[in-house]
Simulated scan of single mutants.
Amino acid sequence: MAFPIPHLISSPASSFLPYNPLLNLTPLSLNPKIPFSTPTPPHINVLRHIRRRKATSHLRCSASSYPENNNANSPNQDDVTELPLFPLPLVLFPGAILPLQIFEFRYRVMMHTLLHTDLRFGVIYTDAVTGTAEVGCVGEVIKHERLVDDRFFLICKGQERFRVKKVVRTKPYLVASVAWLEDRPSPSADVDVDGLANEVETYMKDVIRLSNRLGGKAEKEVGDLRRNLFPTPFSFFVGSTFEGAPREQQALLELEDTAARLAREKETLKNTLNYLSAASAVKDVFPSSSSPSSPS
Rank of each mutant, 00 (worst) to 15 (best):
L23M: 15
L147A: 15
R108V: 14
V193Q: 04
T272Y: 02
P292I: 03
Y66L: 12
E82K: 14
R209Y: 13
L262G: 00
E243Y: 04
V193W: 00
P187C: 08
T170P: 02
R261D: 04
I102C: 02
G158L: 02
S291K: 10
V193N: 02
T113S: 13
S188I: 06
T113Y: 11
E201M: 09
S291V: 14
V222S: 07
G139T: 06
L100Y: 00
F152D: 00
R48S: 10
I97N: 01
S37Y: 14
G215D: 12
N271P: 02
L25Q: 12
P292H: 07
G122L: 03
L253S: 00
H49E: 15
R51L: 14
T117Q: 10
V141Q: 03
D257L: 02
F36W: 15
A278N: 11
K165Q: 14
V164R: 05
L85R: 00
R48F: 03
S62E: 11
I155Y: 02
D127V: 08
E134D: 14
K220Y: 07
V138P: 03
D192R: 08
F3N: 04
R226L: 08
P21T: 04
A133Q: 05
L225Y: 06
A13Q: 14
R226V: 08
G139V: 04
A197K: 08
Y173F: 15
A63D: 08
Y66V: 07
P246Q: 05
G139F: 01
T38K: 14
F86V: 07
L154K: 00
K33N: 11
